[in-house]
Design a protein around this nucleic acid. Structure first.
Lengths: 339, 339
DNA sequence: ATGAAAGCGCTAACAG
DNA sequence: CTGTTAGCGCTTTCAT
């Protein structure tokens, strides 16, 4: 038996399980048992321990606990933008499920940049037991690599076959097609699509739907955007130049900005031109005209994502992707073409 | 020497420092040294270790590392609302400072509820080395309790003397007074103040400024709000009923909503009534009329908060509160009273 | 029902 | 410059 050396580090106040055990006159095993309510402890001892814990203000050291347990008890969520209310709604739902299961949430913002996102995955991976990627922009190959390594990662709003990662996504195609149908019924024959970020799967799906609507008689021109207020405002001239009688915007934020700029230019919505959004953020109801858009079921997506991750944490299986439906919300920014 | 028992847990793939050491034919100490670039290691060994690490895809176990180091390497940030762009800007700045110092960020949303916030502090405390509270709604007593325990917590946008916690805040009083001065110059003599959340220190400060402006000749009526789009819209009738010629809103979001509702009611801004906001979020430039508001120096606040926390992590001293100035931004939502 | 003690994986004295 | 080894604080087997 080696002699105990002098301590390496300064005492650093926090109470340890040892001190609790000592003060309560029991072993650390007993303390641990009452704290984790595992094993069996007599009522009397249990009470004594509980009292001492409270008195000393003992809090288990998470690092020690994690090391012993072999898992961290936290999950990470990566998203393109933290300020987007849309993402936040799903985060909130995931949080509810996670905390009920005793997990904490680590959030990170990738700015929608694939490189930063891959970096973030690498950085965060060691800190968490599992990861949820919202609207991931990572390349297909990168995703497959993650899937092959069997990483406990679930994809939200990104469907990619053969990637080996559990996924849940809202069907963007159908409601966008519905939106086009709505425009067609109104009498529109030409629309301009203001795109979202180029790497976004949702943008691809929405554009695919708009293009598909061609067969129904709706001609479409695509103008590049990125879903932000700024870019949307700057794109208005180009949008107008297409001669379209309706503008289908990637999301609500773009649509709001487009409407404002249109107003500056003296173009009336929906009399002169119709405008649509996507997401149904609260703001859509507080602008005039109120925005015709698509309501995404964020809470369903969030809780579904958590279920998938939880399942993944327990088994290496990759279930079939879950598809969630979204509905068209018709408000006042669309009407018959009046130009 | 006790005999090794059979392993308690299933192998759980991750590579350990032991395997790396073994594969590289060195001791774990050497591996640790090259990985943490501490101590000195010959170039040849260093290269070998680095190669093996890459080959095996070794990632240090954070729990073990934290346990040994005695700190977690992460800081938590609590805020009333995660979707508020204003908060996010400061979070981003803190993140920059933190990650440069090797710390990760844990974020949590308290919904602006003091109870939830205290709960979150307790929950998060064991997971982090330090905590930053944005616009904390915790009671004075609760704050003092935290300060007395010497918790490494810094307050942002909440000044409370004698609480024993480092703090940084933007001066809300002066720019709000400037705003009132601007309104006075324009010829207004009566304003209605649409308040923010009742527990908000910033709301208290802004209202205090508006009240102070009485001495300058500006009568003020306070209408309760909470800073949200919804509540703001609902408060418009009351706001109008005050007979004021200008509405000073707690924040930009409220102001935008107020303007929209005013429009619905046929009241023109700024011709019939002036409206002001606070924060200068991007949206203020994408509504019409563009909003007169106050620009808060979020990045200064964020980096300052990180500096304070870092200092606190190294010494128990509580420095003087840091006050940051914010500037008035005059745009198109204010003009001479025209009623 | 309870205690003793062996790790969990890593870092940093300490000895060479 | 490098290896040995003692913990960090907690959980859990194993023995009682």
């Amino acid at each position: 038996m080696a002699e105990a050396r002098s301590p390496r580090r300064k005492p650093a106040s926090p109470v340890t399980i040892n001190e609790v055990a000592h003060a309560a006159g029991v072993s650390t095993a007993t303390v641990s048992r009452v704290l984790t309510r595992s094993g069996t402890v007599s009522a009397s001892l249990s009470a004594r321990v509980t009292a001492v814990v409270a008195e000393l203000g003992y809090t288990p050291n998470v690092a020690a606990r994690s090391l012993s347990l072999g898992h961290l008890g936290n999950v990470g969520i990566l998203m393109p933008s933290m300020t987007n209310p849309y993402f936040y709604d799903v985060v909130e739902q995931v949080g509810i499920g996670a905390s009920a299961a005793g997990f904490r949430l680590l959030l990170a913002d990738t700015g929608g940049d694939p490189h930063r996102e891959e970096q973030a995955v690498a950085d965060l991976r060691p800190q968490v037991d599992g990861l949820i990627l919202l609207s991931s922009r990572i390349s297909n190959a990168g995703l497959r690599r993650l899937g092959d390594k069997g990483e406990p990662i679930v994809l939200v709003n990104r469907l990619e076959s053969g990637v080996g990662l559990p996924a849940i996504a809202v069907d963007n195609f159908t409601p966008t097609l519905d939106l086009c149908g709505h425009l067609l019924e109104l009498g529109h024959t030409e629309v301009a699509y203001l795109s979202g970020p180029s790497l976004s799967w949702q943008d691809r799906e929405r554009w695919r739907a708009v293009e598909t609507a061609r067969r129904l008689g709706l001609a479409a021109t695509r103008i590049e955007g990125d879903g932000s207020l700024e870019t949307a405002a700057d794109a208005v001239e180009d949008l107008l130049a297409t001669g379209a009688s309706a503008i289908v915007c990637f999301n609500d934020l773009s649509a709001v900005s487009v409407m404002t700029r249109l107003g500056d230019l003296g173009v009336r919505v929906p009399d002169d031109i119709s405008v649509t959004g996507f997401d149904d953020i609260p703001l859509t109801r507080h602008v005039r005209p109120a925005l015709t858009t698509v309501r995404s079921p964020t809470s369903v997506v969030g809780s579904g994502a958590w279920k998938l991750l939880q399942a993944r944490l327990h088994s290496p299986e990759t279930p079939e992707p879950v598809i969630v439906t979204a509905d068209l919300v018709i408000r006042d920014s669309t009407s018959t073409p009046g130009r």
